[in-house]
Write a protein that binds this DNA or RNA. Structure first.
Lengths: 255, 255
DNA sequence: AAGTGGTCTAGACCACGGG
DNA sequence: CCGTGGTCTAGACCACTTC
């Protein structure tokens, strides 16, 4: 046998999806149908469907059937917009702007805790792993769609005894507060990656199998040191990040 | 039954992975072992392992066993580095810089073709779907690790009769060539997303199941119009994108 | 040869969604 | 109620890796 039977079934179905013969949202043949069509056992048919599901091409719903994934219009998170000439604009907030929100953008009240820094947080903030940091968390929804989780990490020597330790929003934004505390932000570095979601992310976003998340680690700096790490997690099926550099005519913003 | 048996098995194994009891690179108990340990059938055990595999936590190798995924040190693709004060630096090339390459960065010779624009390409370039575009493709490896696929799309009215239609590298870079042709680039917009790989990407990168890819659509502009779309695809398990904004001390670059 | 995962079958019962 | 997918079992044979 050149190729496994479940692979062949998956390939056939993928062809039909790619060609549009099976359109987005359309139901695949039922499992018993596929069993007859390909002369295979039900388990083999289910293996084929699982393959497509994990590639994000198909979603299955118990009692209803398997459906070709319908891509949704993505939201655009504007991560930076820098006009090199004459002067750059720096965000006043760590909250990303949404370029094309079709509904109200809402953000949960900030939850604050102190906890020991993980290895990755410590590395970015240039502190020792296990050192205490202040963590400020919030989650974001657009209309009824959950789209973002974010957490900001502050070194304790900066945050101790300040408004940063208190729950709730910061009056004039954390960038301004940090500047008033003697830590003027002069720039930031974004490190962007993608991975499969953990259980918490899977549940909050209501993801289906085969959907990754986008992770952004944004480190903010004074001329001397890192002063904050903000970690953003976005659902991969509904969000695109936008970074703009240079003098882009306004009419081109966020397509 | 509160939860499916294969879910319980997967949860147990995940706990052991998260706690470090099963360290990265370590072999899981064999399938027959897990069958005995959890009093389940082999198919049920395999379902549990498949779950972890699709979450990117485990890789299986025939004849050897299942192993906890070993995260590799990621490469950093520097997508932009903008100093707001006094002046920004614009890349001379569409080729991303690698911030921390441990081996030689090699790039394939460019392959060129003409083809009709897909809907997504046409949208970015503000042309009609189906209009011909010049496509220039290349692939990149670091040492022996394939890490990038890129394709640049040029509207035919710009590229026709120019060096852009010829295979091979462009002598002084495409940004300079475009400027000489009367299309000076003044900025670009990056749109970043994540998804599961298609078959071609899976094969080229040698990915294992449960690994997403990062997709960057970079649109370059003159003051009047889009002049190029470059689409980058990176493997999610080995690449992080870097965007820097502001005056970040050099010692913090690609920490 | 022995041990590992990969593929496949046949059948059973459960859970969900919609008439 | 019926049709859909979800879970689980028991067993068979194949393919790969190591010794």
């Amino acid at each position: 046998m050149a190729q496994a039977k479940y692979q062949q079934i998956a390939d056939r179905l993928r062809e039909q999806i790619d060609s549009g013969q099976l359109a987005p949202g359309q139901r695949l043949p039922s499992e018993p149908d596929l069993v007859r069509q390909f002369d295979a056992s039900r388990n083999t048919v289910r293996l084929a469907i699982a393959l497509l599901t994990n590639q994000g091409l198909v979603v299955t719903r118990q009692g209803l059937g398997s459906f070709v994934t319908e891509p949704a219009q993505p939201f655009t998170a504007v991560m930076s917009r820098v006009h090199v000439q004459p002067a750059g604009r720096q965000a006043a907030s760590t909250l990303p702007e949404v370029g094309n929100a079709p509904a109200e953008v809402r953000t949960s009240r900030q939850v604050v805790e102190k906890s020991p820094a993980s290895a990755s947080v410590a590395d970015k903030l240039e502190i020792a792993p296990g050192d205490l940091v202040v963590v400020r968390r919030r989650r974001g929804t657009i209309g009824s769609v959950p789209w973002m989780m974010m957490a900001s990490y502050y070194p304790m020597d900066i945050a101790a005894g300040t408004e940063l330790e208190l729950a709730g929003d910061i009056a004039h934004g954390s960038v301004r507060l940090l500047a008033e505390l003697g830590y003027p932000q002069v720039g930031f570095a974004d490190e962007i990656g993608a991975r499969m979601p953990n259980g918490q992310e899977f549940a909050f976003f209501g993801l289906s199998t085969g959907t990754p998340v986008i992770v952004v680690n944004r480190t903010a700096y004074t001329p001397d040191r890192p002063i904050r790490l903000t970690r953003y997690v976005y659902r991969g099926d509904r969000v695109r990040l936008s970074h703009e550099v240079g003098s882009i005519p306004a009419r081109f913003h966020n397509g």
